[in-house]
Amino acid sequence: MSGNGNAAATAEENSPKMRVIRVGTRKSQLARIQTDSVVATLKASYPGLQFEIIAMSTTGDKILDTALSKIGEKSLFTKELEHALEKNEVDLVVHSLKDLPTVLPPGFTIGAICKRENPHDAVVFHPKFVGKTLETLPEKSVVGTSSLRRAAQLQRKFPHLEFRSIRGNLNTRLRKLDEQQEFSAIILATAGLQRMGWHNRVGQILHPEECMYAVGQGALGVEVRAKDQDILDLVGVLHDPETLLRCIAERAFLRHLEGGCSVPVAVHTAMKDGQLYLTGGVWSLDGSDSIQETMQATIHVPAQHEDGPEDDPQLVGITARNIPRGPQLAAQNLGISLANLLLSKGAKNILDVARQLNDAH
């Protein structure tokens, strides 16, 4: 009898209710805020589980004197976190989706994509230029951005401005803007500013005609071990179906173009009346040469937790077992079709030249 009692006690200790789920994140304040929001949602869904947040620095956090596009290494903000995932030191990792490459290392998958916040870019102005827009900034004003995508589009749109690289986390960039006289304004992701509670610093939100956004911008991705079915089931509740389908289309477009950090590629997606609209573009580094096109596809946005595919093969690095396969494939095909259209119009040449120029500098 006593033996059975011990077995029952052991089973209770090993039951999922007692389990601590370890969540990996970057150390920056924004990353911690984003991770806290994901953990809060998981806690609400699984009140019996405990969650421990483990923060670590990544290569991208450490190399702050070089433009991201020049470092010449993929997975700048993800490699150390993936290493911890691989060694079973954490069970899942919360990322900004735009930091996750469209091809993940073997053994990993994006197990959830959370509801997207505003994906557009924002302009934050130096205190002396508050009330201005990019259009009304004085001639030769210097605007800071760490992104080739932003610089290429904005140089084309605002030729009277000069664009220079600015690195560091959000706090560091804002301090550089406010305390030094080098920059009249800087460009940042609206979602990051909003998550930090800095709505009052948003001086201008850039519309798609001015600057399309990065693939996955404004959404959070939760990376897990691809074979860890328990954790895949656990994080599945975080999937937002519309965000998922938009981001599958965007990531398929980028992957098929073979774009990345070192080339200016941008997108804009919208879901309306059962249609998914995808606009994508590529630019030369100075913005003088560009190709942009829009395509659409009829896609039914499923309700969360309709029964999805059981075999769960990944699409552009994403596993969404609780979302039907048909809409996911339709979104992926839309991204591939748009990429093929741009490639047929000469996108590869623009991107190759951009890559060579970026590598040469």
Rank of each mutant, 00 (worst) to 15 (best):
359 D>V: 03
193 L>P: 08
159 P>D: 07
131 G>F: 10
88 N>I: 11
235 V>I: 03
116 R>A: 08
133 T>A: 07
237 V>Y: 04
34 Q>W: 01
248 I>R: 04
30 L>Y: 04
97 L>Q: 01
180 Q>N: 15
263 V>W: 01
188 L>A: 11
45 S>K: 15
151 A>G: 11
276 L>K: 01
133 T>F: 05
336 I>T: 01
165 S>L: 05
48 G>A: 13
347 A>Y: 15
178 D>K: 04
102 T>H: 15
77 F>H: 01
136 T>C: 06
245 L>W: 10
176 K>M: 12
198 W>G: 08
118 N>M: 11
163 F>Y: 10
299 I>T: 14
346 G>T: 08
155 Q>P: 10
199 H>V: 14
134 L>N: 01
96 S>K: 01
160 H>W: 10
173 R>D: 01
323 I>Q: 15
192 G>A: 06
251 R>L: 01
84 A>V: 07
82 E>C: 06
225 R>P: 13
241 P>W: 14
35 T>S: 09
111 G>E: 03
44 A>M: 04
251 R>N: 05
313 P>R: 13
156 R>V: 12
306 E>G: 07
271 M>L: 12
217 Q>P: 07
58 T>W: 01
215 V>F: 05
310 E>V: 09
135 E>Y: 09
225 R>C: 11
21 I>F: 09
216 G>E: 01
81 L>T: 10
289 D>A: 13
353 V>D: 15
330 A>H: 03
207 H>R: 08
91 D>L: 03
153 Q>H: 06
116 R>E: 05
227 K>C: 01
291 I>K: 13
224 V>C: 14
124 V>D: 01
146 S>G: 12
250 E>S: 01
88 N>K: 14
140 K>G: 11
113 I>T: 06
189 A>N: 03
223 E>M: 01
49 L>K: 07
330 A>F: 07
141 S>T: 09
239 H>K: 05
245 L>H: 09
169 N>Q: 05
246 R>Q: 14
218 G>N: 01
110 I>C: 09
164 R>Y: 07
83 H>C: 13
139 E>W: 15
242 E>Q: 10
90 V>I: 11
349 N>L: 13
287 G>N: 03
200 N>V: 06
31 A>S: 11
169 N>T: 08
350 I>Q: 04
248 I>K: 01
34 Q>D: 03
345 K>E: 01
262 S>M: 01
239 H>W: 01
167 R>Y: 09
80 E>Q: 09
271 M>N: 08
341 L>K: 12
206 L>K: 01
43 K>S: 10
329 L>R: 15
242 E>C: 03
55 A>M: 07
351 L>C: 15
165 S>T: 14
331 A>R: 01
211 C>Y: 09
248 I>N: 06
140 K>I: 07
171 N>R: 08
81 L>E: 03
39 V>D: 01
285 L>G: 15
66 T>H: 08
276 L>S: 03
